[in-house]
Design a protein around this nucleic acid. Structure first.
Length: 855
RNA sequence: ACCCGCGUGGUGGAAUGGUAGACACAAGAGACUUAAAAUCUCUGGGCAGAAAUGCCGUGCCGGUUCGAGUCCGGCCGCGGGUACCA
């Protein structure tokens, strides 16, 4: 008997699959189709364990669906545009394209070594001109369909490098390269009008039955629908052409407690005031220095400046409210102006206390008429409150009905306008960078912004660019920008902004249906293959990527590129957990914590030491990451144990949606198990022709085999691969301990085991299939079907409880009547002993489950 | 702060309201071996007991139920998401 030699066997089967085109997706109207897709990777150049887990999950599904008679589409591509390539260009002087394609080559080889059932003939990268050219075509169609707008937006501006920064390039409010304080600056940008679809995208979340509840909730919150009202406040004295300030409020019922107005530093009125008031100009300028990132806003202190202007309260005109500029008021939500009601909003209360503004209650809690002091009174909207002297005549009711009544009242009096607002903002896609899909428009002095002609697509990125100065290389390319206007033919300038990489990933799933089509999609192919039946990826994409894709599918439908049925492109979504690993550290120079790479660790009984002998501190178990140096390189694992071991490990133990901790011991154990399976298969193979001479033992063995088929299938269907793996362990144990006289069934068991293991460890399964002289490839062999007859036991063991405590058990025929079981229970010696002569008050028989005797 | 999710042996984790701890890892004991590795066998929630068995046990407190890890209410802890959103 030989040891299982994964290093030679795995490439052999990969070549065989490749040669026979086993995984080529083929339209076949005689079969149901199944489209499995894992979120495509960024080509960093190196596979990590997270990839192995993600793609193995999808591969198990793909191989299972294929074995159960589906026409499977399981493609792979590369999300290839983005910043890291430009960084590499700046740091090492390589061209972003060369860097990217080299990485793709390296990663493709590593992916192939995992033995994934991918149809590689459909591979593409988003940086292929064939792909982004079609994306430009989509852009032009969407522009024509009114789905795209051009407007001003605030960006992070690095005043030293004179360049726009992505949010992730802003660290502590400073540019990552220059270290300069980042400023907010307005630029004219391209936007996808996703906010037009807010309500539809929100409503349709209800139809996403096979999405995780968590993701649906996150999207709902992100869209952020709120009902409120817009209330105009008249300026006591009109300022220039402005006579009123419109505030948006979701709590108009608290209008009685309004004691000031706060407007955004970017509000038109604030801007107008800047020119004549130096203090205001300075204050606003200071506010704009704060970056747009969430952390920057969070840390910023709530500050305000009194403009000296006042407004009339709309309901109590005799009251004059001061108008402040508040750094916490956002121009791009609502109207950029709010009324402050300190009694019923904590932030307003803090502001009022800081600047000495009045605090007036609009309502009390029933039976508690104390005024607000340092804690704003904000009960849940479903709770009943007592309104004080309310203008719309409401007294005691829930806040929600108070809000509704007030909105209607204000509407009726012409004092406000009921409004539904969404947090979801239009999607700004302009990026001032080189390595992205060029936006296909031209700026002409005479014609303005002109869309490119489709026959000029793709608008390809120029190759000859340099990264020796900051900013966008397209801006100073000697010739690329200079083009003839597509409308009038006069000299004009090409747009140098490129698209956000989220655009690239918003439709790639549709492109896989016909990756070489000369239009974005092919109607026949896309109608056949879409939707994605099972989408798999990290929860970090729960909001943006998935929401953008949902929007894009609608936009593609509107522009004729997707059928109506595909406007929700992902039928089912699965979000998998991370791969984690222990961290190790020691005190480095000047006492700072120094992380130590996994390969430098020697694990000892008590802890860990560096291979140079210094003791190490074992840190927390966290996601594998370069910065913590706790990565385990899949390539090294594949070299040591083979791909099947890595696949088996990541599918074992932890449920796929949870994090899995990579441990050396676990990997070793997975490898040992696969060796054991191989050993058993070899034994069976060497035993040759065998017969069953012990029919009873053989029958119960066969029952076990079929329970295993049932369990593994059920586990895969329910994305509980860890449970499938447990059933496979059970079957392996049973084969090993098979009683004498079950030789034939044992052979059957090994063949079934191989077939059930195919989705998890396909190479080993093929090798066993071949060793047992079975025809064809196991990858093309149908999935075993459990015989329902064999799943039914003839006798069952029923636990007997007395007053809820398990005291005995009885064996009863599977279909026994309750009365029969009652008789058996009441004559069972150990039951009688526990009853001690008492007669039961009640006997509960749950057929096939349990008996409870109540005394 | 708000919104989700989760708390089960030494560990990862099983368990349609019905025998808690499947399966695996780590551990201990044994077999084989000159020895080790590899492999195989057995043990394994806690306490008491030689054992049979008994009591306790799924973060804590209470409730519903013949029966609760599972359902309900409250608390504690951990994880995730989101937010100057008016």
């Amino acid at each position: 008997m030989t040891r299982y030699d994964a290093q030679n066997i795995e490439p052999k089967w990969q070549a065989a699959w490749d040669k026979q085109g086993v995984f080529k997706a083929q339209r076949d109207d005689s079969k149901p189709k199944y489209y499995v897709l894992e979120m495509f990777p960024y080509p960093s150049g190196k596979l990590h364990m997270g990839h192995v887990r993600n793609y193995t999950l999808g591969d198990v599904v793909a191989r299972y669906k294929s074995a159960t008679g589906h026409a499977v589409l399981h493609p792979m591509g590369w999300d290839a545009f983005g910043l890291p390539a430009e960084n590499a260009a700046m740091e090492r002087g390589v061209h972003p394209g060369d860097w990217t394609y080299q990485n793709i080559d390296a990663m493709r080889a590593q992916f192939k070594a995992i033995g994934l059932s991918i149809d590689w003939s459909r591979e593409f990268a988003t940086c292929d001109p064939e792909y982004y050219g079609q994306q430009q075509s989509l852009f032009l169609d969407m522009l024509e369909a009114g789905l795209i707008a051009r407007k001003n937006a605030v960006v992070n501006w690095d005043p030293v490098d004179m360049t726009v920064l992505a949010n992730e390039q802003v660290e502590d409010g400073k540019g990552w390269r220059s270290g300069a304080e980042v400023e907010r600056r307005e630029l004219t940008q391209w936007f996808f009008r996703i906010s037009d679809y807010s309500e539809e995208l929100l409503q349709a979340i209800d139809s996403l039955h096979h999405w995780p509840e968590k993701v649906r909730l996150m999207q709902t919150n992100w869209i952020g629908k709120s009902r409120g009202t817009e209330v105009p406040f008249h300026l006591t004295d009109a300022y220039e052409d402005q006579s009123e300030i419109i505030c948006y409020s979701t709590r108009p019922d608290t209008l009685r407690g309004a004691s000031f107005l706060a407007i955004s530093p970017d509000h038109p009125l604030s801007k107008a005031l800047e020119s004549e008031n130096a203090d205001i100009a300075a204050f606003n300028a200071d506010c704009r220095k704060t970056g747009t990132s969430e952390e920057a806003l969070e840390r910023a202190e709530k500050k305000g400046l009194d403009t000296g202007l006042t407004v009339e309260h709309p309901v109590y005109p005799e009251r004059q409210l001061p108008v402040w500029i508040g750094n916490f008021v956002l121009m791009d939500y609502g109207t950029g102006a709010v009324f402050g009601c300190p009694a019923h909003d904590q932030r307003d209360l803090d502001f009022a206390r800081k600047y000495g503004l009045p605090v007036t209650n609009a309502f009390y809690m029933p039976g508690d008429e104390t005024d607000v002091s340092d804690q704003a009174l904000v009960p849940p909207k479903t709770e009943t409150v007592v309104y004080i002297d309310h203008f719309a005549g409401i007294g005691t009711c829930t806040s929600q009905s108070g809000i509704d009544t007030t909105i209607n009242w204000l509407d009726a009096k012409g004092l406000g306008t009921g409004q539904v607002k969404y947090r979801l903002r239009d999607w700004g896609v302009s990026r001032q960078r080189y390595w992205g899909c060029p936006i296909p428009v031209v700026h002409c002095d005479d014609c303005g912004v002109v869309p490119e002609r489709k026959e000029n697509l793709p608008i390809a990125l120029p190759q000859d660019v340099t990264f020796d100065r900051p900013g966008n290389p397209l801006d100073w390319h000697p010739t690329w920008r200079k083009v003839a206007c597509p409308a009038c033919g006069k000299p004009a300038t090409r747009e140098t902004d490129t698209m956000d990489t989220f655009v690239d990933s918003s439709w790639y799933f549709a492109r896989f249906a016909s990756p070489r089509a000369t239009s974005p999609t092919d109607t026949g192919d896309v109608s056949y293959w879409m939707n994605v039946d099972q989408y798999i990826g990290g929860v970090e994409h729960a909001i943006l990527h998935l929401l953008y894709s949902r929007f894009f599918a609608r936009a593609m439908h509107k522009t004729g590129h997707l059928p109506k049925a595909a406007i929700e492109p992902f039928n089912a979504l699965f979000t998998q957990g991370m791969v984690t690993h222990e961290t190790y550290s020691r005190a480095g120079e000047n006492g700072r914590e120094e992380w130590v790479a996994t390969e430098d660790i020697i694990r000892t009984e008590k802890g860990a030491t560096h291979k140079d002998g210094t003791p190490l501190v074992i840190g927390p178990i966290i996601k594998m990451s370069k910065s913590k140096k706790n990565v385990v390189d899949p390539a090294a694992i594949i070299e040591q144990y083979g791909a099947d071991t890595a696949r088996w490990f990541v599918m074992s133990d932890s449920p796929p949606e949870r994090d899995v901790e990579w441990t050396a011991a676990g990997a070793d154990a997975a490898w040992k198990h696969l060796q054991r399976v191989w050993r058993l298969a070899t034994e069976v193979s060497e035993a040759g022709e065998a017969t069953d001479t012990n029919p009873d033992a053989a029958l119960s063995f066969r029952r076990l085999i079929h329970r295993c088929i049932e369990g593994v299938t059920h586990g895969i269907e329910g994305f509980a691969f860890n449970k499938s793996v447990a059933r496979l362990y059970e079957l392996t144990n049973a084969i090993q301990k098979a009683p004498a006289g079950t030789g034939a069934t044992r052979q059957e068991a090994v063949l079934t085991l191989a077939r059930l293991m195919t989705p998890f460890t396909p190479h080993l399964a093929e090798e066993i299939w071949e060793a047992l002289e079975q025809p064809g490839l196991i990858s093309q062999t149908p999935w075993p079907v459990a015989d329902p007859e064999l799943l039914i036991e003839d006798t069952v063991t029923l636990p007997v409880q007395i007053n809820g405590k398990r005291r005995a058990e009885i064996r009863a025929p599977a279909g026994a009547e309750s009365s029969e079981i009652e008789d058996m229970v009441m004559s069972d010696p150990s039951v009688l002993k526990h009853l001690g002569g008492q007669s039961p008050r009640k006997l509960i028989v749950v057929p096939g489950r349990i008996v409870n005797v109540v005394v």
